[in-house]
Amino acid sequence: MRKPVSILLLCLLLLLLPVLGSGGYLLNIIVMIFIFVILAVSLDLVMGWAGQISFAHAAFFGIGAYTTAIMERDLGTGFWVNLPSGMVVAGLFGLALGLPALRLRGHFLAIVSIAFQTIVYLALSQWTSFTGGQYGLSVEPVPGFQRVGQFYYLALALAALTVVLAWALTHSRVGAAWQAIRDDEVLARAIGLHTTSSKLLAFVIAAALAGGAGVLVAHHIRGVTPDDFTILVSASIVAMVIVGGQGTLWGPLLGAVVLTALPELLGPLASFKLVIFGALMIFMIIAMPEGVLGAWVHRRRR
């Protein structure tokens, strides 16, 4: 009974937070936490469940963000059209990358994903006539959600939908296939699983969800620039998954909350956040490779 009651209390707290008079600064931080929850939980489908390494998640994040900015500028469409469009475009890029890349494994796949991330960043920063270059593009707020207290509920709803979708996928036959591939891909292939198509499905779903997060952040900060979607952002999302605990669903969520809020808590040390993230990742890989949540579950079982 403890787990459902705890989840219910957390949901009530999140729903009441804007009503309780929380300031705009705090709500803005929480909105960014919701966005990174979407990114971390979606990346965990690839890393934690399907067992594939990817450093390209910020590229799909940026593709979704620029899709909504360009569609708004050129077509005059709004958030509710741009959200599915951004997800589809990011998913198609995930498919285009996954088809050749997912035949690779381990470090080779990681290197290819880094190369893709670099190509996307260079395209966003150098294709000035289309993307605005380093100046970026402006984005209008979502009608009816202009105030941060209103946008908070939109971000909360999309983050909750992402967590529910991830739970449904990982507790289905699709999730069982991903776990089999993660644990022993050769054996999974031997018993008849289509390993490449299963990995590709995880990659496309994760890319589409990251694209949706990109649409959300573009309307939240009301603009996009290439520096919002660099390899360092990808590394931060990977850190969230590793620190929280891969393949645990709640672990990446915990990692997103902690590592998004951490720079705000560091104060003057916030400029060293990447150094701190790197040191934290090294510590976690050596001391707690299963992540914070995984280590806690393991300890309770013992």
Rank of each mutant, 00 (worst) to 15 (best):
G133P: 09
Q134L: 09
Q134S: 05
Q134Y: 00
Q134K: 02
Q134N: 06
Y135A: 11
G136L: 06
L137D: 02
L137V: 03
S138F: 15
S138G: 15
S138L: 15
V139N: 04
E140S: 12
E140M: 12
P141G: 06
P141V: 08
V142L: 11
V142Q: 12
V142W: 04
P143G: 09
G144W: 11
G144T: 11
F145P: 03
F145D: 02
F145W: 14
Q146D: 05
Q146V: 06
R147I: 08
R147K: 15
R147V: 11
R147L: 14
V148T: 13
V148P: 00
V148C: 04
G149A: 13
G149W: 12
G149P: 04
G149T: 07
Q150A: 13
Q150W: 00
Q150I: 00
F151E: 01
F151A: 01
F151G: 01
F151K: 03
F151V: 07
Y152L: 07
Y152M: 09
Y152N: 07
Y153A: 11
Y153C: 09
Y153K: 07
Y153H: 15
L154W: 10
L154H: 10
L154Q: 05
A155L: 04
A155Q: 03
L156D: 01
L156Q: 00
L156G: 03
A157G: 13
A157V: 15
L158G: 11
L158R: 12
L158V: 15
L158I: 15
A159I: 07
A159L: 04
A160T: 12
A160I: 08
L161S: 07
L161Y: 05
T162I: 14
T162G: 09
T162P: 06
T162K: 14
T162F: 14
V163Y: 06
V164M: 15
L165T: 08
L165H: 01
A166S: 06
A166E: 07
A166P: 02
W167I: 10
W167D: 00
A168G: 10
L169S: 05
L169W: 05
L169K: 12
T170P: 06
T170H: 06
T170A: 03
T170C: 09
T170V: 14
H171L: 10
H171F: 07
H171C: 03
H171E: 08
S172H: 09
S172E: 03
S172P: 07
S172D: 02
S172K: 13
S172T: 08
S172M: 10
R173Q: 10
R173K: 13
V174E: 03
V174W: 10
V174P: 00
V174T: 14
G175E: 03
A176M: 14
A176Q: 14
A176N: 14
A176Y: 13
A176D: 02
A177C: 13
A177T: 15
A177E: 08
A177W: 13
W178M: 14
W178V: 04
W178N: 05
Q179I: 08
Q179D: 09
Q179T: 04
Q179H: 01
A180G: 02
A180T: 05
A180K: 05
I181H: 04
I181P: 05
I181G: 04
I181R: 12
D183P: 02
D184I: 07
D184A: 05
E185Q: 09
E185N: 00
E185W: 01
L187Q: 02
L187W: 00
L187F: 02
L187G: 01
A188P: 01
A188V: 00
A188C: 01
R189L: 06
R189W: 13
R189K: 12
R189V: 01
R189S: 12
